[in-house]
Design a protein around this nucleic acid. Structure first.
Lengths: 238, 238
DNA sequence: ACAAAAGTGTTGAGAGTACACCCATGC
DNA sequence: GCATGGGTGTACTCTCAACACTTTTGT
């Protein structure tokens, strides 16, 4: 059924020795939706993958950097660019994809929900947000990747202010605290939280106040332009 | 000059879209030699690489896990197995290797120098230890990988007791402290160091004492068997 | 007895945690 | 004027850093 054509390969071609693995990137795209930490999953149209949700991913182009591939996968599903992404870990167990050998470099991305326009592209039958606390069964080893991504996200919150990447451009400290509480699944003390976040020195007041809803209007903050670079340089570990 | 043969490929084959990158692992192998932190480098016999030292590395076999490939590269150069290895980061800039597209998953390894028997294997013209504080010019982006590996190693020392991986099976606390001081390039307080290391609870006394040299004999310690697993689970971050 | 390295405790500073009340606004 | 969420300070605990003398052995 599959039609074929011929190409030239070196005389000493030996599939078992020189076959190359496929290389993909898979991106755990986090966002805050309705007071819940959610992740964007896709379902492929073709069998035999129609039954499992999977992380958005793509093959790495032959002249494309890994970061570019990750950002392309991200933009393809969400329409957003210029958000926080970071390489996580590379998964390469020989049998992780039953079809063929695939090595995948995992990334995580933090996107403000207000910026997202989920898109169903060619090859996908569906794209949807799922709570990380109530995930469906995932394809391949993607459950492991999500767990790793979530652990890393929580860890980063402890010693950086990366949380604001999930919020709109301007936000109140209460909104930021709520984001942290959702991700860490624990209550935080308001005074201690504010002291800690402000001590990082990466937020600045806009001078404006939020005046919807009830109660006293809250000061609006934005993060300094150089905050992203600063957070990224503190990656290390793992 | 190159002879060719033909194989079948799918009809829709499109080199620019489906060509696969090569995938390698490169290993930063650290050891302590003569009160210095050193790293094992190789020089390839073939031109045009005869002029640069490079990290030991290898292609990832089509049915081989990434960890297995890293350990194979390690055993190939040093003869050691079962030492501490950990995946670091994956480097994939399109032009990092001028010959062809190569994505490399970097690892670091900590080996006790007493266990190493450096070996010159096929393809190598030379294998040698170099101080990480005085490196020659390296091939590709290997200088960047070494810098990353060293940063990670130092970071891990701050919150784990991974340093004993560089020492023989049994060692004194003074020897362990010296290892830390060399890696971190700073003096440490003896009492604070001992309190901190022992508080991890991963060392145990052997009951023996070291009786060479002068002065009071020092207690010998070993690390608990489960210490490696414990250190590994604390990887995360970056 | 002396040289040489091992071993051991206490104090002070700073970071992190727990905790309760007043303030500005809309209705 | 009251309901709603915003904003603020202090005391306690624990971790980390600084610091000097005694002990055990070989010669």
């Amino acid at each position: 059924m599959t039609q074929v054509m011929s190409i030239d390969v070196p005389e000493n071609y030996n599939p078992s020795e020189f076959d190359r693995p496929s290389v993909t990137v898979d991106v755990a795209i986090f966002s805050l939706v309705e007071d819940d930490l959610r992740i964007l999953l896709t379902k492929r149209a073709e069998r035999p993958f129609a039954q499992y949700w999977a992380l958005p991913g793509t093959f790495v182009g032959i002249n494309e950097s890994l970061d570019d591939a990750a950002n392309r996968a991200l933009a393809d599903k969400t329409g957003v660019k210029d958000v926080y992404t970071e390489q996580l870990y590379t998964f390469g167990a020989p049998d992780r994809d039953p079809r063929t050998r695939v090595i995948t470099i995992s990334y995580f991305a933090l996107v403000p929900f207000t910026a997202v326009k989920p898109q169903i592209n060619k090859g996908d039958s569906d794209v949807s947000w799922f709570s990380v606390f109530d995930l469906p069964e995932l394809a391949f080893d993607h459950a492991q990747i999500v767990e790793y991504a979530l652990t890393r996200l929580r860890y980063k919150l402890e010693y950086t202010a990366v949380g604001f990447q999930l919020l709109p451009d301007v936000f109140t400290l209460t909104e930021l605290q709520k984001a942290y509480e959702i991700i860490l699944s624990e209550r935080l003390d308001k005074r201690n939280f504010r002291r800690k976040i402000l001590s990082y020195g990466i937020l600045e007041e806009t001078g404006n106040k939020k005046k919807d809803g009830e109660g006293r209007p809250a000061k609006l903050y934005r993060y300094r332009d150089d905050a992203v670079a600063e957070v990224k340089t503190r990656r290390l570990f793992p």
